[in-house]
Design a protein around this nucleic acid. Structure first.
Lengths: 194, 194
DNA sequence: CATAACCCAAACATGGTTGTTTGAGATAAG
DNA sequence: CTTATCTCAAACAACCATGTTTGGGTTATG
């Protein structure tokens, strides 16, 4: 789904503004899912009319910001080598993922509000699939518990990350602590019970 | 305007309406955290003006609904005997709690939006304390892991329940499955790692 | 039954958000 | 230099939510 970056009749300043708006939307909506279009425009250093020139509705902007967020996440996640020992791979995935969840939690809220939870899942799909595949592989190799479905383990994975991000946001948990706790907690989640 | 708390001259129909409004608020806000005052009034079978006669602001109503919700939760939770084997007690707590989280998830969202996360935690405090005390007891008896703080284990407890409620709401998880999976998952969370 | 308490619909004020229009001015690109 | 593209502020329209006021009707209660 590569968009035509070089639209023949689009000026570079327009492209730059468009990018600035998406970035601003990402930042604003992450901080506050209910940020208004005016706020986002101001944060982008652009007039409100200009914003509507690029995105004809709030929904469209949220959509674009979501795509951007997923893109950034993929940049971090794609290069990870998850083919080794499933336990090690999972720890690696956790330590990389939780910051992303922390960063984009607000945006996800805005997107759920604006696009519906289904559409969000659709975007989130590839990211979630990566986790689920790892869960399945760990189950197949007998290192992860198989008495619970990979779907459920995946849901728990995100639930814990989401919870940690919330705790951090409330100032009840430090980032360093999260870094230390999360891998062990997730490990416990998937381990074969005694 | 007049904030006569102990209005001994309050008519019974007024009391009944007040109760109906709180119930309606509980139901509406649980289903949709952004339900309007008009919606809630309609659901309560009452005029909008009457609603404002009882609660002078949305904030006040959400506050009252929160108190009501906590009350209902306590009715379910208080009689539980959590003094036996911590593992058994935790399973009992899980099977009773997850439905409550499922029921009130929306309301909690509305309350966080309206009263701020801190105030919600304040309400939620007793409920959370019950979990934390159990975690501490399990740690003290050596049956729960002690390499992670009781606070963290408590946060994870709610994160998992919250996640399960979300999965249910999205139709990706059945209530019966949740009943089967959750106790084992929480068990794994608190167990001493191998 | 008398009356204070209560309910309610309609209307109003206020403020915020989304989205659009206009018209004049700036600027990138050929 | 010329032009199509782009920006922008101001104003406008439409909508929705929160609260308030009014004035007439209903009902509990003593």
């Amino acid at each position: 789904m590569t968009t035509d970056v070089t639209d023949r009749t689009q000026r570079v300043d327009a492209q730059r503004n468009r990018a600035a708006i998406i970035d601003a939307a990402l930042a604003c909506l992450s901080a506050n899912p209910r940020a208004s279009m005016a706020e986002i425009a101001r944060a982008a250093g652009v007039g409100r009319v200009t914003l509507y020139g690029h995105f004809s509705s709030r929904r469209e902007l949220v959509e674009a910001a979501s795509v951007q967020a997923i893109g950034r996440a993929e940049v971090q996640l794609a290069p990870l080598d998850l083919d080794g020992d499933p336990r090690e791979a999972l720890r690696l995935l956790v330590t990389t993922s939780w910051r992303l969840v922390d960063d984009f939690q607000g945006l996800i809220g805005a997107a759920e509000q604006e696009l519906g939870a289904d559409r969000v899942r659709e975007h989130h799909d590839e990211t979630m699939l990566r986790v689920r595949r790892l869960m399945e592989r760990g189950q197949a190799s007998g290192q992860f518990r198989s008495d619970q479905s990979a779907d459920w383990l995946t849901a728990c994975f995100f639930a814990i990350l989401h919870g940690a991000a919330t705790e951090i946001r409330l100032g009840r948990l430090g980032e360093d602590e999260a870094d230390r706790l999360l891998p062990d907690t997730i490990q416990a989640l998937v381990s074969v019970p005694a």
